[in-house]
């Protein structure tokens, strides 16, 4: 009788510990990434993806994100086709990922006004991984955190070749904006 009581107590503890463990993770499945590669006086080259996944561990500051390339939407169908087939080769490389850590992350210090943090990690696009360091603005929202920011990336850094014919129409540095509403 006593033994079963101890087992029951142990089980309860394990369950409690587990729920505590998962509560530390904030997630989103509908994060937003926009990029801009337009050149002045040429057609707009821009796309948006509204189905980005991301996980943030509140205790350690570990951050991971995954974006499916086919989820990027352009205004013009032909541009979307070229983006997928010629540049990103999304049949071969269906996703881009980021794995890293927010430096000096302390969730207790975060308020409703955005605070800058440094996010360092490895960015993988087009099957090529590069270390990156970006500034991320984090603010508190009901039931979680909002992480947003912008950074630039060069296509050649990720082995994305842009034919000389369209080189003039696409910016050298592509501006990427992201916004994640991370909730429990």
């Amino acid at each position: 009788m006593k033994k079963s009581y101890i087992i029951f107590l142990a089980l309860l503890l394990i369950i409690a510990a587990n729920t505590q463990g998962t509560a530390q993770k904030l997630i989103t499945k509908t994060g937003n990434i926009k990029f801009q590669a337009s050149m002045p006086s040429y057609e707009e080259v821009a796309a948006e993806n509204k189905s980005v996944s991301a996980v943030l561990d509140q205790t350690t500051g570990d951050f991971a994100s995954l974006v499916l390339i086919k989820g990027f939407r352009f205004k013009v169908a032909l541009m979307e086709e070229h983006f997928n087939e010629n540049y990103m080769e999304s049949e071969k490389f269906p996703k881009a990922t980021f794995k890293g850590k927010i430096e000096d992350f302390d969730s207790s210090k975060i308020t409703s006004s955005p605070k800058n943090f440094t996010l360092k990690g490895d960015l993988t696009i087009h099957g090529k991984t590069r270390p990156v360091s970006v500034i991320v603005k984090i603010s508190k929202v009901s039931n979680g955190l909002n992480a947003a920011g912008a950074f630039e990336a060069k296509p050649e850094d990720f082995d994305i070749e842009i034919p000389s014919l369209v080189r003039k129409k696409i910016a050298d540095k592509i501006k990427i904006n992201y916004n994640f509403l991370l909730i429990k």
């Binding site: 499945k29 189905s51 996944s53 996980v55 995954l66 499916l68 086919k70 989820g71 269906p94």
Partner: peptide
């Protein structure tokens, strides 16, 4: 179908 999300083990 836009692919498989390995973070959450879901098809998107």
């Amino acid at each position: 179908c836009i692919g498989y999300d390995e973070l959450f083990l879901e098809v998107k």
